[in-house]
Protein backbone atom coordinates (compact mmCIF):
# COMPACT_ATOMS: atom_id res chain seq x y z
CA UNK A 1 0.00 0.00 0.00
CA UNK A 2 1.40 3.34 -1.01
CA UNK A 3 1.51 5.77 1.86
CA UNK A 4 -0.28 8.32 -0.31
CA UNK A 5 -3.17 5.97 -1.06
CA UNK A 6 -3.45 4.20 2.30
CA UNK A 7 -7.13 4.96 2.81
CA UNK A 8 -8.49 3.80 -0.57
CA UNK A 9 -6.40 0.65 -0.25
CA UNK A 10 -7.69 -0.06 3.24
CA UNK A 11 -11.26 0.35 1.98
CA UNK A 12 -10.75 -2.71 -0.17
CA UNK A 13 -8.53 -4.70 2.20
CA UNK A 14 -10.63 -4.21 5.33
CA UNK A 15 -13.25 -6.77 4.33
CA UNK A 16 -10.45 -9.35 4.45
CA UNK A 17 -9.70 -8.39 8.02
CA UNK A 18 -6.83 -5.97 7.36
CA UNK A 19 -7.48 -2.77 9.27
CA UNK A 20 -5.25 -0.09 10.75
CA UNK A 21 -6.31 2.00 13.68
CA UNK A 22 -6.39 5.77 13.31
CA UNK A 23 -3.39 6.06 15.59
CA UNK A 24 -1.38 3.69 13.40
CA UNK A 25 -2.38 5.55 10.24
CA UNK A 26 -1.39 8.90 11.67
CA UNK A 27 1.95 7.52 12.85
CA UNK A 28 2.67 5.86 9.51
CA UNK A 29 1.82 8.95 7.53
CA UNK A 30 4.38 10.98 9.45
CA UNK A 31 7.11 8.48 10.12
CA UNK A 32 7.22 7.01 6.61
CA UNK A 33 7.52 10.47 5.05
CA UNK A 34 10.49 11.13 7.32
CA UNK A 35 11.93 7.71 6.52
CA UNK A 36 11.64 8.36 2.79
CA UNK A 37 13.51 11.61 3.19
CA UNK A 38 16.18 10.22 5.49
CA UNK A 39 16.90 7.17 3.33
CA UNK A 40 16.69 9.15 0.07
CA UNK A 41 14.04 6.85 -1.35
CA UNK A 42 11.66 7.72 -4.16
CA UNK A 43 8.75 5.80 -2.73
CA UNK A 44 7.88 3.98 0.48
CA UNK A 45 5.07 1.48 0.92
CA UNK A 46 3.45 0.05 4.01
CA UNK A 47 3.96 -3.69 3.55
CA UNK A 48 2.02 -5.12 6.49
CA UNK A 49 2.60 -6.55 9.90
CA UNK A 50 3.92 -9.79 11.29
CA UNK A 51 2.25 -10.77 14.53
CA UNK A 52 4.50 -11.90 17.31
CA UNK A 53 3.32 -13.33 20.60
CA UNK A 54 4.43 -10.41 22.74
CA UNK A 55 4.59 -7.66 20.08
CA UNK A 56 3.95 -7.06 16.38
CA UNK A 57 6.42 -6.00 13.68
CA UNK A 58 5.26 -3.40 11.18
CA UNK A 59 7.09 -3.59 7.88
CA UNK A 60 7.66 -0.87 5.28
CA UNK A 61 9.42 -1.17 1.96
CA UNK A 62 11.11 1.52 -0.06
CA UNK A 63 12.65 1.65 -3.51
CA UNK A 64 14.42 4.11 -5.74
CA UNK A 65 13.29 2.95 -9.14
CA UNK A 66 10.52 0.81 -10.53
CA UNK A 67 12.60 -2.39 -10.61
CA UNK A 68 12.40 -5.41 -8.33
CA UNK A 69 14.95 -4.16 -5.75
CA UNK A 70 13.57 -2.92 -2.45
CA UNK A 71 14.81 -2.04 1.01
CA UNK A 72 12.76 -3.29 3.96
CA UNK A 73 12.34 -1.61 7.32
CA UNK A 74 10.64 -2.72 10.49
CA UNK A 75 9.16 -0.96 13.44
CA UNK A 76 7.47 -1.99 16.66
CA UNK A 77 5.57 1.26 17.18
CA UNK A 78 5.16 2.64 13.62
CA UNK A 79 7.37 5.57 14.62
CA UNK A 80 10.99 4.47 14.76
CA UNK A 81 12.10 2.37 11.81
CA UNK A 82 15.16 0.15 11.46
CA UNK A 83 16.44 -1.43 8.28
CA UNK A 84 16.17 -5.21 7.95
CA UNK A 85 19.47 -6.94 7.16
CA UNK A 86 20.18 -8.53 3.79
CA UNK A 87 19.87 -12.29 4.02
CA UNK A 88 22.27 -14.67 2.31
CA UNK A 89 20.45 -17.50 0.47
CA UNK A 90 22.09 -20.14 2.71
CA UNK A 91 20.84 -18.36 5.83
CA UNK A 92 17.41 -17.97 4.24
CA UNK A 93 17.24 -21.75 3.88
CA UNK A 94 18.01 -22.22 7.58
CA UNK A 95 15.43 -19.60 8.50
CA UNK A 96 12.76 -21.49 6.55
CA UNK A 97 13.34 -24.45 8.87
CA UNK A 98 12.45 -22.51 12.02
CA UNK A 99 9.05 -23.53 13.31
CA UNK A 100 6.80 -21.68 15.67
CA UNK A 101 5.70 -18.13 16.11
CA UNK A 102 7.69 -14.92 16.20
CA UNK A 103 8.15 -13.91 19.82
CA UNK A 104 8.13 -10.14 19.40
CA UNK A 105 11.66 -9.65 20.68
CA UNK A 106 14.07 -8.86 17.79
CA UNK A 107 17.08 -10.20 19.69
CA UNK A 108 15.45 -13.54 20.54
CA UNK A 109 17.66 -16.39 19.34
CA UNK A 110 16.38 -19.47 17.53
CA UNK A 111 18.54 -22.54 17.16
CA UNK A 112 18.38 -24.49 13.93
CA UNK A 113 19.79 -27.95 13.46
CA UNK A 114 21.16 -28.70 10.04
CA UNK A 115 22.47 -32.10 9.01
CA UNK A 116 25.58 -32.04 6.93
CA UNK A 117 25.67 -35.29 5.04
CA UNK A 118 28.75 -34.67 2.90
CA UNK A 119 31.09 -34.98 5.87
CA UNK A 120 31.01 -38.71 6.37
CA UNK A 121 32.42 -39.67 9.73
CA UNK A 122 31.30 -42.86 11.35
CA UNK A 123 27.52 -42.63 11.24
CA UNK A 124 27.62 -40.56 8.08
CA UNK A 125 26.23 -37.25 9.17
CA UNK A 126 27.02 -34.40 11.50
CA UNK A 127 24.43 -32.20 13.11
CA UNK A 128 25.39 -28.55 13.01
CA UNK A 129 23.46 -26.08 15.11
CA UNK A 130 23.28 -22.42 14.21
CA UNK A 131 21.65 -19.61 16.11
CA UNK A 132 19.57 -17.08 14.23
CA UNK A 133 18.25 -13.88 15.74
CA UNK A 134 14.60 -13.03 15.27
CA UNK A 135 15.56 -9.91 13.33
CA UNK A 136 17.27 -12.07 10.70
CA UNK A 137 14.35 -14.49 10.64
CA UNK A 138 12.05 -11.54 10.11
CA UNK A 139 14.12 -10.33 7.16
CA UNK A 140 14.09 -13.82 5.67
CA UNK A 141 10.33 -14.17 6.18
CA UNK A 142 9.64 -10.84 4.49
CA UNK A 143 11.83 -11.84 1.54
CA UNK A 144 10.18 -15.27 1.31
CA UNK A 145 6.67 -13.81 1.41
CA UNK A 146 7.62 -11.27 -1.25
CA UNK A 147 9.03 -13.97 -3.48
CA UNK A 148 5.84 -16.02 -3.44
CA UNK A 149 3.15 -13.39 -3.10
CA UNK A 150 4.21 -10.01 -4.46
CA UNK A 151 1.90 -9.80 -7.47
CA UNK A 152 0.79 -7.17 -9.96
CA UNK A 153 -1.93 -7.14 -12.61
CA UNK A 154 -0.75 -8.02 -16.10
CA UNK A 155 0.17 -4.82 -17.88
CA UNK A 156 0.84 -2.72 -14.82
CA UNK A 157 4.57 -3.01 -15.47
CA UNK A 158 6.37 -3.33 -18.75
CA UNK A 159 9.77 -4.22 -20.04
CA UNK A 160 11.35 -1.46 -22.10
CA UNK A 161 13.50 -2.29 -25.16
CA UNK A 162 16.56 -1.70 -22.97
CA UNK A 163 15.41 -4.48 -20.59
CA UNK A 164 14.38 -2.12 -17.83
CA UNK A 165 11.25 -2.98 -15.85
CA UNK A 166 9.17 0.11 -15.24
CA UNK A 167 5.68 1.18 -14.29
CA UNK A 168 3.41 1.27 -17.34
CA UNK A 169 1.85 4.68 -17.24
CA UNK A 170 -0.61 3.66 -19.88
CA UNK A 171 -2.11 0.98 -17.62
CA UNK A 172 -5.78 1.72 -17.11
CA UNK A 173 -6.69 -1.41 -15.16
CA UNK A 174 -7.89 -4.84 -16.17
CA UNK A 175 -11.34 -5.25 -17.62
CA UNK A 176 -14.03 -6.60 -15.31
CA UNK A 177 -13.87 -10.06 -16.91
CA UNK A 178 -10.09 -10.26 -17.07
CA UNK A 179 -9.76 -9.17 -13.45
CA UNK A 180 -11.62 -12.27 -12.32
CA UNK A 181 -9.13 -14.62 -14.00
CA UNK A 182 -6.07 -15.92 -12.23
CA UNK A 183 -4.06 -15.69 -15.48
CA UNK A 184 -4.22 -11.88 -15.33
CA UNK A 185 -1.82 -11.59 -12.39
CA UNK A 186 1.94 -11.97 -12.40
CA UNK A 187 4.68 -12.41 -9.81
CA UNK A 188 6.69 -9.23 -9.48
CA UNK A 189 10.11 -10.92 -9.32
CA UNK A 190 12.84 -12.26 -11.56
CA UNK A 191 11.06 -14.91 -13.66
CA UNK A 192 11.44 -18.55 -12.59
CA UNK A 193 8.71 -20.62 -14.21
CA UNK A 194 8.67 -18.49 -17.36
CA UNK A 195 12.03 -19.91 -18.40
CA UNK A 196 10.64 -23.44 -18.52
CA UNK A 197 7.87 -22.52 -20.95
CA UNK A 198 8.05 -24.09 -24.37
CA UNK A 199 8.88 -21.89 -27.38
CA UNK A 200 5.35 -22.48 -28.64
CA UNK A 201 3.84 -21.07 -25.44
CA UNK A 202 6.27 -18.17 -25.45
CA UNK A 203 5.47 -17.30 -29.08
CA UNK A 204 1.94 -16.35 -28.02
CA UNK A 205 3.15 -13.97 -25.31
CA UNK A 206 3.66 -10.26 -25.55
CA UNK A 207 7.36 -9.60 -24.98
CA UNK A 208 6.68 -6.23 -23.41
CA UNK A 209 4.07 -7.46 -20.90
CA UNK A 210 4.58 -11.19 -20.30
CA UNK A 211 8.10 -10.96 -18.94
CA UNK A 212 7.13 -12.24 -15.46
CA UNK A 213 5.69 -15.52 -14.13
CA UNK A 214 1.94 -15.83 -14.21
CA UNK A 215 0.48 -16.92 -10.88
CA UNK A 216 -1.65 -19.51 -12.67
CA UNK A 217 1.50 -21.68 -12.79
CA UNK A 218 1.86 -21.71 -9.00
CA UNK A 219 1.86 -25.06 -7.26
CA UNK A 220 -0.44 -26.41 -5.87
CA UNK A 221 -3.33 -25.40 -8.11
CA UNK A 222 -5.92 -23.27 -6.33
CA UNK A 223 -3.33 -21.85 -3.94
CA UNK A 224 -4.86 -18.43 -4.62
CA UNK A 225 -8.41 -17.60 -3.67
CA UNK A 226 -9.87 -15.02 -6.08
CA UNK A 227 -13.15 -13.23 -5.36
CA UNK A 228 -15.08 -10.20 -6.44
CA UNK A 229 -15.71 -8.16 -3.32
CA UNK A 230 -17.33 -5.03 -2.10
CA UNK A 231 -20.22 -5.31 -4.54
CA UNK A 232 -17.90 -6.38 -7.41
CA UNK A 233 -16.05 -3.08 -7.18
CA UNK A 234 -12.80 -4.81 -6.41
CA UNK A 235 -11.16 -8.17 -7.01
CA UNK A 236 -9.45 -9.63 -3.98
CA UNK A 237 -6.80 -12.34 -4.14
CA UNK A 238 -5.78 -14.15 -0.98
CA UNK A 239 -2.74 -16.35 -0.79
CA UNK A 240 -3.44 -19.66 0.91
CA UNK A 241 0.27 -20.50 1.10
CA UNK A 242 0.91 -17.38 3.16
CA UNK A 243 -2.41 -16.90 4.97
CA UNK A 244 -2.83 -13.22 5.71
CA UNK A 245 -1.60 -11.94 2.35
CA UNK A 246 -4.33 -10.02 0.54
CA UNK A 247 -4.09 -8.31 -2.83
CA UNK A 248 -6.76 -6.12 -4.40
CA UNK A 249 -7.31 -4.52 -7.77
CA UNK A 250 -10.19 -2.33 -8.85
CA UNK A 251 -11.10 -3.23 -12.45
CA UNK A 252 -10.90 -0.46 -15.03
CA UNK A 253 -8.72 1.69 -12.78
CA UNK A 254 -4.98 1.64 -12.20
CA UNK A 255 -5.42 1.14 -8.43
CA UNK A 256 -3.97 -2.04 -6.94
CA UNK A 257 -2.12 -2.92 -3.78
CA UNK A 258 -1.48 -5.56 -1.20
CA UNK A 259 -0.79 -6.07 2.47
CA UNK A 260 0.19 -8.92 4.73
CA UNK A 261 -1.13 -9.34 8.24
CA UNK A 262 -0.24 -12.71 9.63
CA UNK A 263 2.07 -14.74 11.77
CA UNK A 264 4.87 -14.94 9.20
CA UNK A 265 4.62 -18.70 8.87
CA UNK A 266 4.27 -20.53 5.58
CA UNK A 267 1.32 -22.89 5.31
CA UNK A 268 2.92 -26.16 4.28
CA UNK A 269 -0.26 -28.13 5.04
CA UNK A 270 -2.25 -26.50 2.25
CA UNK A 271 -2.51 -29.67 0.20
CA UNK A 272 -4.60 -31.29 2.97
CA UNK A 273 -6.74 -28.21 3.50
CA UNK A 274 -7.93 -27.59 -0.03
CA UNK A 275 -11.57 -28.49 -0.36
Amino acid sequence: MDVQSLSPALDHLSSSGIVLSTERRVSLDTSLTLLMHAEKLKQVKYWGRIQGVAADYHIAQGSNDDGYATKSFYSMDCIRWAQLPEIHPVLAKSCAKIRGRFTGNPSHEFTVEAIRSEETKGDGSIVVTTTITEEKRLAAAVAAIDKETRIVPRGAYRMTPSDVVERNHGFGGLSHQAAGKIESYMHFRQPITLLSKSPLERARMDQGLDFMDSISDDIPKNCWSIQYQNGSKAVVLRSLIWPGFVFFHTPNSPLFGHAYVGTGQRNNDLIFELP
Binding site: D11, S14, S15, V19, S21
Partner: peptide, 12 residues
Amino acid sequence: FADADVGLGEQE
Protein backbone atom coordinates in the same frame (compact mmCIF):
# COMPACT_ATOMS: atom_id res chain seq x y z
CA PHE B 1 -11.93 -3.38 17.81
CA ALA B 2 -10.77 -1.04 15.05
CA ASP B 3 -8.65 0.85 17.58
CA ALA B 4 -7.00 -2.46 18.33
CA ASP B 5 -6.33 -3.22 14.62
CA VAL B 6 -9.12 -5.79 14.36
CA GLY B 7 -12.23 -5.54 12.24
CA LEU B 8 -13.77 -5.41 8.81
CA GLY B 9 -13.91 -1.70 8.15
CA GLU B 10 -16.60 0.79 9.04
CA GLN B 11 -18.78 0.27 5.98
CA GLU B 12 -18.96 -3.50 6.16
